[in-house]
C-alpha cells in the first residue's frame, strides 16, 4: 500500500547477513556523505549557531550577555509571535485545502483523457511556478490595484465597487490567492504523474464491474495517490508556516495592512534585519521550527496510519 514513509518500504528488503550489513553501513554513509556534509554546513551548523545565539542577548548599548532561556520565555509570551502564528494557521486551514483540491481536480481532469489540448493545459498551469518574485510584485500590483489597477479598471468600467483586495480584511485572502496561483501547477504535476502510473487494468476491471468514472476516482485513483497527497500536504504545511515571499511582495502595495510581524518568518526577518535582534530572532525561529516539526510529524503519522 502507499505510504509517504520510505523507511517502511526500504525495510521490505530481505534481511541480510550481519557481516555484510556492517560492510554496507559504511558504504551507505559513503553515498549519503556528500549530501550530509553540505547539509551539515548549510543547515545544521547555522541552526546550531542559532541555538547558541538564542541563549544570549545583544544590545546596542551594553553588549552581549548570557541570558539562559530568557529569550524562550519572552517568545512564549510574545503576542506578536502568537498573532503571526494564528494568522498562518488560519491561512493553512483555508489555502492549503483549496490549492490542493484545485491541483487534484486538474490532475484528475488531465489524467482522465477527456480534455481537449491536454499538453497546453499542463504547461500553462505549471508556468506561474517559474515566475520570479520581482515580477510577481509588479504583476499582482497591477491586478490588485483598486486605484489604477485591474480592480480599479473593472470598477470604472462596470460602475461597481469591488472590495479592495489589499484591505486589512482581505489581504490574507489575496496572499492566499497568489500562493495558490504559484503552486497549483507544482502540486498538480505531483498528483498527475502519480496518477499516470496506476495500472489501467484496474480501471478496466472496475468498468467491467459497472463502476462509473466518479467511482473509479474515489475507489481507485485517490487511494492510489495517497502518498503523493500526504507529501504535498506536508510540504504545503511547512510552506504555509514559512510564508514569507508573498507578504513581503505585497507589502510594497499594502504596507499598513501587512505588518512586519505578519507571519512568523516575516517576524524573524524583521527582528533580525530591521532590529538587529539576531538572538531573539533565532529564538523565535527555533520555537517555530519545533512547532512546525510537531505538526508535520502528526500529519505524517496520520497519513501513514490511513495509508497502511
Amino acid at each position: 500500500m502507499t505510504t509517504p514513509q520510505p523507511p517502511a518500504t526500504a525495510e521490505r528488503s530481505p534481511a541480510r547477513p550481519s557481516a555484510k550489513r556492517d560492510r554496507r553501513s559504511w558504504t551507505g554513509w559513503g553515498f549519503i556523505g556528500p549530501f550530509a556534509a553540505v547539509f551539515a554546513l548549510v543547515f545544521l551548523a547555522p541552526i546550531g549557531y542559532s541555538v547558541y545565539l538564542s541563549l544570549f542577548r545583544d544590545q546596542l548599548i551594553g553588549g552581549t550577555t548570557f541570558v539562559g532561556l530568557d529569550n524562550y520565555q519572552q517568545a512564549l509570551q510574545d503576542d506578536q509571535f502568537w498573532a503571526s502564528l494564528g494568522r498562518v494557521s488560519a491561512f493553512l486551514a483555508v489555502q492549503v485545502p483549496v490549492m490542493l483540491l484545485i491541483a487534484l481536480f486538474v490532475a484528475l481532469a488531465l489524467d482522465s483523457g477527456r480534455l481537449y489540448g491536454k499538453d497546453f493545459f499542463r504547461i500553462s498551469i505549471f508556468l506561474p511556478y517559474a515566475v520570479p518574485a520581482v515580477v510577481a510584485t509588479l504583476m499582482w500590483g497591477f491586478m490588485y490595484g483598486s486605484q489604477f489597477g485591474l480592480v480599479g479598471d473593472i470598477n470604472d468600467a462596470l460602475g461597481v465597487s469591488l472590495p479592495d483586495p489589499l484591505s486589512t480584511e482581505l489581504v490574507l485572502a489575496s496572499i492566499g490567492n497568489i500562493v495558490t496561483w504559484e503552486f497549483v501547477g507544482y502540486n498538480m504535476l505531483i498528483f498527475y504523474s502519480a496518477l499516470r502510473v496506476i495500472p489501467h487494468s484496474l480501471y478496466e476491471a472496475a468498468e467491467i464491474d459497472g463502476a462509473g468514472q466518479f467511482r473509479i476516482v474515489t475507489a481507485i485513483k485517490l487511494p492510489a495517490i495517497r502518498g503523493a497527497l500526504v507529501i504535498a500536504t506536508i510540504f504545503s504545511i511547512i510552506g504555509s508556516f514559512q510564508l514569507f515571499n508573498e507578504p513581503v511582495i505585497l507589502r510594497d502595495l499594502a504596507r499598513n495592512a501587512i505588518t512586519t510581524d505578519y507571519t512568523p518568518n516575516f517576524y524573524t526577518y524583521s527582528l533580525s534585519f530591521d532590529g538587529q535582534q539576531h538572538n531573539y530572532s533565532a529564538t523565535v525561529a527555533i520555537v517555530m521550527g519545533l512547532i512546525t516539526m510537531v505538526i508535520a510529524y502528526v500529519v505524517q503519522l496520520r497519513g501513514m496510519r490511513k495509508g497502511a
Binding site: L60, N256, T259, T260, S270, D274, G275, Q276
Partner: peptide
C-alpha cells in the same frame, strides 16, 4: 533616533493603522 532605521521599519505597523482603520 540613534535607532531610526528600526523605528522607521515599524512606522506602518503602528502609525499606519491611521490610514486603514
Amino acid at each position: 533616533l540613534p535607532y531610526q532605521v528600526y523605528a522607521n521599519s515599524i512606522f506602518n505597523n503602528t502609525a499606519g493603522k491611521a490610514y486603514i482603520s
